[in-house]
Amino acid sequence: MSTDFQKARDALGIRLRELRTTGPRGRLTGPQLGEQLGWPHSKIYKLENGRQTANAEDLRAWAEATGRPDAAPELLSRLKGLESHVRSWRRQLATGHRPVQDAITAEHARTTTLYIWENALIPGMVQTPDYARAVFTRHARLMRSPRDTEEAVRARVRRQEALYDSGKRHRIIMWEGALRALVCSPAVLAAQLDRLSGLMGLDTVEMGIVPFAAPLKIHPANGFWIYDDRLVIAEDWHAELWIDDTDSIAVYRRTWNLLRESAVFGVDAQRIITAAARPR
């Protein structure tokens, strides 16, 4: 978890403690506030000590219980600031995958050059509907989120229209393992690899593959997307990280450049894709 995120969460906890101890109804102990809210008192202290992130309902309830309902907008603003950087999957997927896809589509619309690194999956920007369907289904099962798979697939596929926009550039690098990962049936993967081959001739797409045998300048860690050097979105199991500070973006861009140095393109990349598509 990022240092800036934790500092902001600590600051929110300090503000919550202040409301608990100085409210117009007098000082409340942690157990007293927990009893009012129907929470274990351990939750009170976890929130105040920055060891747990409140949700919007928690903050509204806290403001009401401490006699400061007027503080709710301020607390919610602080929460919004937190979530602008660390967006938990649990919250994002509360209503399914479609809203997440819509948020990403909005960023794509604002972007001229998109830099993509993926180490385990074919990037969403070039997925076939069947491949995307398999990925969404597995993720929804993991996160126990609502199943809006078909809506999410349609949103992802519509976003791919940008691949044919002459004003945009997509610079994509993948680890060879992403071509071979059976996150779907072999038939679906074969069709997906055929789709990659077809996209390699587009002048709006640069596609590179980092072979298993390539000497690496940096280890092929988690996937990330760089939007015009103004935003990075990186995925982890618990959350998406939306990173917009200049220094951090520069680190990701250097990382992408190092990965690119290990990649092959053109005929050499096509050869690896073809090899991955052969029956096993």
Rank of each mutant, 00 (worst) to 15 (best):
L47V: 06
H85P: 00
Y45A: 10
E64H: 14
L47P: 00
L59K: 13
A71F: 06
K43C: 00
P73E: 06
G81D: 14
W62G: 00
Y45Q: 13
G81T: 14
E48T: 02
D70P: 07
D70N: 14
L75W: 06
H85V: 09
E64M: 10
S77M: 12
A65I: 05
W62I: 01
G67F: 08
D70M: 13
A72N: 13
E83T: 15
P69G: 11
L82G: 01
R60P: 02
K43Q: 02
Y45S: 14
K46S: 09
L82V: 03
A56M: 04
I44S: 02
S84K: 07
Y45G: 07
A65E: 01
T66I: 07
T53A: 13
E74V: 14
V86Y: 08
K80V: 10
P69M: 10
A63R: 08
A54H: 02
A54D: 00
T53P: 02
I44P: 00
S42Y: 03
T66V: 09
L79E: 05
L47Y: 03
L59I: 05
Q52D: 04
E74A: 15
A65C: 05
S42I: 10
Y45E: 09
E48P: 00
R78C: 12
Y45I: 07
N49K: 04
E74P: 02
K43I: 02
A72C: 15
G81N: 14
E74I: 08
N55F: 12
L76C: 13
N55W: 13
A56S: 10
I44N: 00
E83F: 09
I44K: 05
A54L: 02
K43S: 01
T53W: 05
L75S: 04
H85M: 07
I44H: 04
H85G: 04
N55T: 01
L82N: 01
E74M: 14
L47G: 00
L59W: 01
G67Q: 10
S42R: 07
E83H: 11
S42M: 10
P69H: 09
D70L: 15
Q52A: 06
A54F: 03
L75Y: 09
L76E: 15
K43G: 01
D58T: 12
P73H: 12
A63W: 03
L79G: 05
S84V: 06
S84W: 02
P73C: 11
L59V: 05
A71E: 02
L75G: 03
G81W: 09
L75T: 01
A56K: 14
D70I: 15
A65S: 11
T66P: 01
